[in-house]
Computed example of a mutant assay.
Amino acid sequence: MTSHNELRLLPWSGPDGKPCFLSTDDTGGYLSRLADRTESAQLDVGAELLEHAVGVLANDDSDQEELRLLATDLKDALRNALRVAASRSHRLPAAARGGDEGPRLPAAAFC
Rank of each mutant, 00 (worst) to 15 (best):
G17E: 04
Y30L: 08
P106I: 01
S13P: 12
G55Y: 02
M1T: 15
R88V: 06
P19V: 00
D25C: 01
A109Q: 02
A81C: 11
L78Y: 02
D26K: 03
R68W: 09
R37D: 04
A35P: 01
N5I: 09
A53C: 04
R37C: 04
A86V: 13
G28S: 12
A85S: 13
R68H: 10
D44K: 03
S89R: 15
R37S: 06
P106T: 07
D100T: 11
F110C: 02
D26Q: 04
N5C: 08
L78Q: 09
N80T: 08
A85L: 15
A71E: 01
R79N: 12
A81S: 13
S3A: 14
R79S: 14
P11A: 03
H4R: 15
Q42M: 04
G14P: 10
R83V: 13
D61C: 05
G46Q: 09
H90L: 14
G55Q: 01
L43Q: 02
A35V: 00
L69I: 04
V84D: 13
T24R: 01
A86S: 12
L22D: 06
V84N: 12
D26P: 07
A109L: 03
T2N: 10
S23H: 12
L50W: 05
A94S: 15
G17L: 02
E51R: 11
D25S: 04
N80L: 08
G29Q: 03
L43I: 04
S32I: 01
A86R: 14
L49F: 00
N80V: 05
G28Q: 07
D100F: 13
R104F: 09
T38H: 05
D76S: 13
N80C: 12
W12Y: 12
L105N: 07
N5E: 11
A86E: 15
A35W: 02
S89F: 13
D16E: 12
L82V: 14
D60N: 03
E66K: 04
A94D: 15
G17C: 05
D100Y: 07
S62M: 00
L69S: 09
D73N: 11
D73M: 02
R97K: 14
A53I: 03
S40L: 03
G28H: 04
V54I: 04
L70K: 00
G14R: 12
P103Q: 07
V56Q: 00
C111F: 10
P11D: 07
E39P: 06
P106A: 05
G46E: 05
W12S: 09
G28P: 05
E66W: 00
S32P: 06
L43V: 07
R79F: 14
V84C: 13
L69R: 14
G28L: 05
S89W: 13
G17H: 04
E39F: 00
P93G: 09
G17I: 07
D61G: 05
P106M: 03
L50D: 09
C20Y: 07
L92A: 07
S3H: 13
V56W: 00
V56G: 00
G46N: 10
V54Y: 01
P106K: 02
H52R: 14
G98S: 06
L105Y: 10
S87L: 05
R8M: 15
R37V: 02
T27P: 06
C111W: 08
F21W: 14
V56D: 00
G55E: 02
W12M: 06
L49G: 02
V45M: 05
K75Y: 02
D76R: 09
A71V: 05
A94Q: 15
D26G: 01
G55F: 00
